[in-house]
């Protein structure tokens, strides 16, 4: 089983080296690919200097476009499992095996690492506003897809080969986390959540909190996007 960690990085020069070091120290066998999303700081130089496996996007695409590049890379290089892993030190490398497990057992197509399932396991529960936002999105996903996803904005997720192919061809790039979850659910893929611990960011700037500066705006658009997606993605008909 070949597993690839997809690490999107936008202006993460302070964090990226430590993140990759953590990965290599914990598990030598894990492959990783850093997707540098056209960073304007020294991320690119850092990646080249330290000879990290990376792709430099020639222009900034946003988190969705960057992650999709990772899925394309995973598909072309015949990986069985792809894990989305943030470059800012927020996700715990020790939890990777935990979210890969249900996929290795063949039970599910995508496994999301969630902060909210088990309160004790995660030291970082994030702010009240963010939890509220996640709950609202969660309710709408439940309405549209009949499946409860407690942490729909979590960027810590593992997918199997079938979903890698699906995402390489077709990945919603505007509100990637909730939208991609909906796109899988309406097409009959199995999605499961496991509790993971998440840390506070070690530095740099999050790509989602930048959007969360305008929480109401973001929420309305995500909710509408979910409802539109649950119709437009379904058209392609059932599980392939």
């Amino acid at each position: 089983m070949k597993i690839l960690l997809i690490i999107p990085a936008y202006n993460e020069e302070k964090n990226i080296l430590q993140t990759v070091k953590n990965i290599q120290e914990t598990n030598q066998k894990l492959d990783y690919i850093v997707i540098n999303d056209g960073s304007s700081d020294g991320t690119k130089q850092k990646l080249i200097e330290n000879n990290l496996n990376h792709i430099n996007l020639i222009h900034n695409l946003g988190i969705g476009g960057a992650v999709q590049t990772g899925y394309k890379y995973a598909y072309e290089n015949n990986y069985d499992i792809a894990v989305q892993f943030d470059g800012d030190g927020q996700h715990d490398i020790n939890c990777v095996s935990k979210i890969c497990e249900p996929i290795l057992e063949g039970q599910v197509d995508m496994c999301i690492g969630t902060r909210y399932l088990d309160k004790s396991s995660s030291e970082f529960q994030s702010t009240f506003m963010r939890r509220l936002g996640a709950n609202i999105i969660s309710v709408f996903i439940k309405i549209c897809c009949r499946k409860k996803i407690t942490d729909p904005t979590s960027g810590f997720r593992a997918v199997n080969r079938k979903v890698i192919k699906e995402f390489a061809e077709n990945y919603p790039t505007e509100y990637p986390e909730p939208e991609s979850t909906v796109s899988l659910l309406v097409n009959g893929y199995k999605v499961q959540e496991v509790p993971v611990s998440m840390k506070e960011r070690e530095g740099g700037e999050s790509s989602i909190t930048r959007k969360f500066w305008k929480p109401a705006d973001y929420m309305i658009k995500v909710v509408l996007a979910i409802m539109i997606d649950s119709i437009s993605f379904r058209k392609r008909g059932g599980k392939r």
Partner: peptide
Amino acid sequence: NILLIQEISILKK
């Protein structure tokens, strides 16, 4: 555009 940027970047790598 997104497709082009992704494919070119992967090719460059």
